[in-house]
């Protein structure tokens, strides 16, 4: 049998996730639409009325301010989920990754195939979210289209390092801590709901350490059409570089740790 070319292993792993996803596809698409609708209605329109009454955001409606933040934050949450439980299922619960590893598929294929799948899934979630934003009239610039890949990259900046961590775990105990002490605080404090500048001055620099903040600044600049001014182009490139840095380093460790785990058995 001729051996399939190197890239196809990644494709096979991707295909596995796709087949699983198609089983719950409809429910998933439904909630992908519903979640942004509910959040934008309650927080953007309902609560937004009280924010707008104060003119707190210098002329920008709260709905328009909030929408890109929620877009990126939602991708973070989806990514964190996809990078924890499914990875543990494959390595520990059903052990299907060990089954794959007994075939020509390599450890790196399993890591990269899963990350590729997460990228695809994030693209889907972000696109649906962006459509809802546009339907709410919450996007002031056509550049919102570019906020979709930004949201995907932000998601991957979480997914890659979290998948690497998940590969080292034998039980899901610590995942709850990641969500409670990592994902939820980031969701709340990284500029999703209000500018980071409203936080006490001492904690503001902390926002720079998280991929979410960089993703939100970029997506908001694109959605509001203020990119070039806020953030400036050089600053936007710095934000983008930081996101890519998280992805590259995270992917490196995900490949190494998932491979190591497969070898250990």
């Amino acid at each position: 049998m001729a051996l399939a070319p190197a890239y196809s292993g990644i494709g096979r792993v991707f295909e596995h996730r796709l087949v699983l996803y198609l089983k719950t596809f409809r429910a998933s698409i439904f909630s992908s639409f519903l979640t942004p609708i509910l959040f934008l209605t309650a927080m953007g329109l309902g609560l937004g009325a009280y924010v707008d009454a104060n003119q707190s955001l210098g002329g920008v409606s709260y709905l328009a301010f909030l929408a890109p933040g929620l877009l990126v934050a939602t991708c973070m949450q989806v990514a964190a989920f996809e990078a924890t439980f499914p990875i543990m299922a494959g390595l520990v619960w059903s052990r299907v990754y060990h089954a794959m590893y007994a075939t020509p598929i390599r450890g790196s294929d399993i890591a990269l195939g899963n990350l590729a799948w997460m990228g695809f899934r994030l693209l889907l979630v972000a696109s649906i979210f962006a459509i809802v934003i546009v339907l709410f009239g919450a996007a002031t610039s056509p550049l919102i289209v570019l906020a979709i890949p930004v949201a995907m990259l932000t998601g991957l900046a979480f997914a890659a390092p979290i998948a690497a961590f998940a590969a080292t775990q034998r039980t899901p105990e610590k995942f709850a801590a990641i969500f409670r002490f990592g994902i939820t605080p980031l969701f709340l404090f990284s500029g999703t709901f209000y500018p980071v500048e409203s936080l006490p001055a001492i904690v503001q620099p902390l926002a720079w350490l998280t991929p979410l903040y960089h993703g939100i600044v970029l997506a908001r600049g694109l959605s509001l059409g203020t990119i070039g001014v806020s953030p400036t182009i050089p600053l936007a490139l710095v934000h983008l570089a930081i996101l890519l840095g998280f992805i590259v380093v995270g992917t490196f460790f995900a490949v190494r740790l998932i491979s190591a785990r497969l070898v250990r058995g």
Binding site: H16, L20, K23, S94, R95, V96, H98, A99, A102
Partner: peptide, 9 residues
């Protein structure tokens, strides 16, 4: 393998 690695889903 000794332990089942079937995809239960």
């Amino acid at each position: 393998p000794q332990q089942d690695t079937l995809d239960t889903e």
